[in-house]
Simulated scan of single mutants.
Amino acid sequence: MPKFHLNIKELIQGEFIIHKVNVAFVFQVNCPGCFIYGIPIVNELYSSFNSKVGFIGVATAFEDFEYNNKASLKLLLESGTLVGETQKYYHANYGISNYTETLNFPVAFDSIISSEQFINSDKVELICHAIPNFENFPEIERKSIIQKVKSYYATIPIIAETFTINQLKGTPSFIIFDDNYNILANYFGHQHKEILKTKLADLLG
């Protein structure tokens, strides 16, 4: 069963307490869809399940680093201030520059490191070992794959660890995992809240 690798330096809001069932909501501050669809769903799930389920929001960054950063996240949490494309969307459609919904769940910023730090760590091998049957490949093939992954990430100046190690497809992403960080379900993009509600209810028995 694949593991969820949660790499954060600090919580910006709240306290994450691990439970038998947990939800990580991975989003970007400069991602209108994360605000239109993601945050309201997670707020509702948190309201319904927070006594039995652990919740953590992880603001990440794989593009638009001038907006997707810890400073923008803090502004959002403190005053609802929006930035970039998210601000443009809400201003164009609603005439507002501040998000009217608060994030009710614990929130952290993804661990951000340089490409040099990343490729010289054991985290590249975590990505490779997620490839089905990687351990059974001939040693020369394993080494070749590891080198190719390192060469790829050497071209990216800034690496968001949670987003990258878990090879997420984009934002918003919803990862459900247990108290041993085994991934129980993984969803990307706009999800109907009832799908997530039903999954959590089933896992809670």
Rank of each mutant, 00 (worst) to 15 (best):
L184S: 09
A185F: 07
P157C: 05
F105M: 12
S151Y: 03
V149Q: 07
H129W: 05
F118Q: 04
L168N: 05
K150N: 04
S115Q: 11
A154R: 05
R142M: 11
H129L: 12
T102G: 05
T171K: 04
I183R: 06
Y152G: 07
T162Y: 00
T162S: 03
E141M: 07
S144K: 15
S144A: 12
I131H: 06
I112W: 00
G170A: 11
D178E: 01
Y153L: 09
I140Q: 14
E139P: 01
E135T: 14
I158A: 06
V149P: 00
Q167V: 08
T162F: 00
D110V: 01
C128S: 14
I127F: 06
S115P: 00
I176V: 14
V124Y: 01
I156Y: 03
V107C: 08
T164A: 02
S121A: 10
L184R: 14
F105L: 08
N166W: 01
F174W: 10
A130Y: 09
I175F: 05
N133L: 12
N166P: 00
A160F: 06
L184C: 13
E116W: 04
Q117Y: 02
F174V: 14
K150W: 03
P157N: 07
F134R: 09
N182Q: 11
F174T: 15
D178Y: 06
F177S: 02
S115N: 15
S114H: 04
